[in-house]
Amino acid sequence: MSGLTILDGAVLRSIDLNLPELAFFKFLNLSLPPHLTEAAISRVTAGDDVSFRLTELNPQQASEKLGVFVSAVADAIRDAPVVVLVLDGSTLKLFLEDEDDFAMLAENLFTDLDEEDKGKLCKSHIRTALSHMGVPPLSDDIIKSHDADGDELLGQAQFAQLLQPVVQDIADILHHKPIPIVLNLDIFTGSRLRNILADEKKLNCILEKMMLQVSNDQGWAHLIKTLIENNGKELGLPPLSSDNEPVLLLYETIFSQLNNREKETTGPGFIDALKDILAKFEELLEATPVYCATNL
């Protein structure tokens, strides 16, 4: 029923701002996360919302402000891409095309909802079944049109027979008008770290701050691990979490390449090794991005 789309600003930068209605159209069906909207609006208004709301804009000025808004959003999601789930009905259609698959789906839903094992469910459980299937709340009119609400009891076969046309109608609606949903996920593609590594001044500034945390009584490899873990957020790395296997694998893969020998931690060799490890993080994240639950 869905597909994942990663918004990293590339599409927004391709918008022809001479056609503002096109840009507006791209935002109409997608509710941006509050932090993105607030950051973009702040850039448009230069931090003075009150004055901006009282300002009358001619078409040219409005187009320019729209351009600032779009650019601000694009910049914000360049380093922190947004993960969007597009509900388009495709998975529902796959179930509907195979009678056996749909029968099994309906049976499993019926069994899960029949908590008292009575072999009967009221029509109103159709709504709950749709929720369990991950169907968005757009089905009230459809449920009413199929008389799929109320207290009338249905057996398993009747329940499946009623569920099928409801699901079919919802799949058709989503096919013609997909629903995008911004997920509460952060995706780490290495883009932020790539930008840091490409900016020598910024990289050196971060490394200098990290070196203030150096203690010579730590092993060389252990120290690099500690510095990277403690400064991961600023570097654009995913937070290390014991319940996120892809992130654990990422760190284990990179840190396994460290040499555990004791070495001087103040010389250029240590800095070069630290940069090399960061570059490996960037390469692996670019090849295999990882997802984490957002802290926002």
Rank of each mutant, 00 (worst) to 15 (best):
L19A: 11
L154M: 15
L22R: 03
L183A: 14
T55V: 10
N244M: 08
A40L: 08
I6K: 07
N58E: 12
K118C: 13
P246Q: 14
L57Y: 11
V70G: 11
A72L: 04
A76V: 02
A148Q: 13
R127E: 13
I173K: 15
A287V: 05
E115T: 14
L7K: 04
A106M: 08
K118F: 14
D141Q: 12
E208S: 00
S131D: 13
R78V: 03
D276I: 00
N230P: 01
E152H: 03
T45Y: 00
D243R: 12
I126G: 04
D114N: 14
N184C: 04
L109A: 00
V44H: 08
K93H: 09
I271K: 10
D186H: 13
P81K: 05
L174R: 09
V11M: 06
V290H: 00
L278F: 02
L285V: 03
L28F: 05
I41L: 15
E208P: 00
F102A: 07
L36Q: 13
I196C: 07
I143R: 12
E38S: 10
D16Y: 09
H222E: 15
F270G: 07
L223C: 09
M211V: 00
S256Q: 10
P238W: 01
S42R: 09
R43W: 00
K118E: 15
I181R: 09
G9M: 08
A129C: 03
D141W: 03
L12F: 15
